[in-house]
Amino acid sequence: MITVTPHIQLREEELHFQFVLASGPGGQNVNKVATAVQLRFDAAHSPSLPEDVRQRLMKLAGNRLTKEGELLITAKRFRSQERNRQDAIKRLVALLQQAAEKPKPRRLRKPSRAAKQRRLEEKRRRGEQKQARRSVKVLPD
């Protein structure tokens, strides 16, 4: 079991790993050993996720989500399979924790009368300041 939050836990069977060849440094080893990890998690049909968390996760995932609703995370930061596997799991957990946080509802506020007056007074003062900078036109006699 992978603990995401006290209320959300994922079973290991829900995660599918595929090991692929990684690009980048590693010398000849990079051409021989599949160290990069692709983690697939079926977010759309996972029984471990509450519906509200699932909706927020789908929105957060963006282009990492496939048409079938699978979340795809590729980890190739490290040279070993195991470290990349752990990195992919850590990134999935971080994304799920972010999705588990309920957004604070926005409370609409009106500016107070005094705040409106201060704003208008400041606008008037700035206008006068700019007016004073203008060149004076001399009228012909």
Rank of each mutant, 00 (worst) to 15 (best):
L39F: 03
Q117R: 13
D87K: 01
Q81L: 02
P47M: 01
L49N: 02
R126N: 07
S46Q: 07
S135T: 11
K67S: 07
I8H: 09
Q131A: 14
L65R: 07
A43S: 04
R83T: 00
N29T: 14
A132G: 12
V33F: 02
E51T: 08
R119K: 14
R118S: 04
A94R: 15
E51K: 11
L39H: 00
D42T: 01
L15C: 10
A132M: 15
V53M: 03
K110G: 03
L92Y: 01
Q55H: 15
L71V: 05
E12G: 04
V53Q: 04
V136Q: 15
R54T: 06
Q86N: 05
Q98E: 15
K104Y: 14
P50Y: 09
V136A: 15
L57Y: 06
K123D: 06
L108I: 09
K130N: 09
K90L: 09
T3L: 15
Q129S: 12
G127R: 08
A132L: 14
T35M: 05
R54P: 03
R77V: 12
A22T: 01
Q55C: 14
S135V: 08
G26Q: 08
K130G: 10
P103L: 03
D52R: 12
R40V: 04
L96I: 12
R85E: 09
E122Y: 11
Q129K: 14
A34K: 13
K104P: 09
L21P: 09
F78T: 02
V33G: 04
K76A: 13
Q97A: 00
H16A: 12
I73V: 15
L72D: 08
R11I: 06
T66M: 06
I8A: 04
H45M: 05
E121A: 14
I2G: 03
G69C: 03
Q28V: 12
L15S: 05
D141F: 11
L108T: 04
R11W: 06
E70I: 15
I2T: 00
A115N: 10
H7R: 09
E121G: 10
G62R: 01
K90N: 06
E12K: 10
I89A: 00
F19M: 13
S80D: 07
A114P: 07
E82T: 00
S135E: 13
N63I: 13
Q81D: 02
R85A: 06
R118I: 01
P47W: 03
N29C: 13
R109C: 10
D52Y: 15
G69K: 07
G127L: 11
R107H: 14
V138C: 11
Q38P: 06
R107M: 10
E51V: 01
R79P: 02
E51R: 13
H16R: 14
A22L: 03
R79F: 09
E101V: 04
T74N: 13
V136H: 15
G127W: 05
P6S: 11
V37G: 00
R134L: 11
V53T: 10
S46I: 02
